[in-house]
């Protein structure tokens, strides 16, 4: 699109959206948000990038092929599920590690569930971008 304003604005907006999407992802377990919503928001950032500056720039900014991101996300989600096997639990049983745990406060939680959600994020992000980029390149 031939809009200077959009093109310039996009650079900042894209970063902002990705940042915001990560925020939605991390807080998703306790507040509205999560991998889906995060991934969707993150992808809109790059969709905007692609609309404004063309897919070539967007692909350069992304560095990795979106399909690989998506498939990698699927792998991460799967591994997060399989991880439970090391503890003798069933597939997709959440494994939690609480850093700085006190009796009152659970501290900072690190869990397979979070990794699963990250996988979801990457899948949604990568998938939408691979469709949109491919479509854009057909026009």
């Amino acid at each position: 699109m031939n809009s200077i304003i959009l093109r310039v604005g996009t650079r900042y907006l894209c970063g902002l959206l990705v940042l915001f999407s990560l925020y939605m992802l991390i807080r998703g377990h306790n507040e509205p948000g999560g991998g889906f919503i995060g991934g969707l928001i993150g992808s809109t950032g790059f969709v905007l990038f692609a609309l404004a500056c063309g897919t070539a720039d967007a692909r350069n900014a992304l560095k990795i092929m979106p399909q690989n991101i998506a498939m990698g996300g699927l792998g991460i989600a799967l591994l997060a599920g399989i991880f439970a096997a090391f503890f003798g639990d069933a597939l997709f049983t959440g494994q939690w590690l609480f850093i700085n745990e006190t009796p009152d406060d659970k501290g900072i939680p690190i869990s397979t569930v979070l990794f699963f959600d990250i996988g979801v994020y990457l899948v949604v992000f990568g998938s939408i971008l691979s469709i949109v980029f491919a479509m854009e390149e057909e026009i």
């Binding site: 699109m1 902002l16 939605m24 919503i37 809109t44 905007l48 609309l51």
Partner: peptide
Amino acid sequence: LVLALVGFLATAA
């Protein structure tokens, strides 16, 4: 918040 952030995307497209 989310809608305000991304809502214009559809319009832009």
